[in-house]
Amino acid sequence: MDRKIRVLVAKPGLDGHDRGAKVVARALRDAGMEVIYTGLRQTPEQIVSAAIQEDVDCVALSILSGAHNHLFPKVVDLLKEKGADDVLVVGGGVIPDEDIPGLVAKGVAAVFTPGTPTTKTAEYIRENIKRK
């Protein structure tokens, strides 16, 4: 049977701007993936717990408040702690270019900034998930 790619789309932090997250969720659905949407204000603990129960291939995080340097690495670390470091973590939102290398060094596989076509995000996930 054809294995479906499963992606958790989550909004860590407190900002309520979920337009991007929802658009990406729909776009991934239209790319044939199963998207689990968790809604706003998710703590890293909640996100990781959901990612494990849902056995996802990828966690896609969206944040617009500027708290990415704090929250993205926390999700990566917690996944590692729970033995789920084979889950691909990608991020998006209003994230200054200069912050990206730091996030990548801390284990965020890719950061998609405003203007990235959703097809590019879907393609990246398809090609980079660690479990085939």
Binding site: G13, L14, D15, R41, T43, S65, G66, A67, N69, H70, L71
Partner: peptide, 22 residues
């Protein structure tokens, strides 16, 4: 900032990383 908008003090756990940001 977002903690203020959601009624959390800056020393709340959920405010970490958000204080003074937006």
């Amino acid at each position: 900032d977002l903690p203020t908008q959601i009624g959390y003090d800056s020393d709340n756990e959920l405010s970490a990383g958000e204080v003074g940001k937006v």
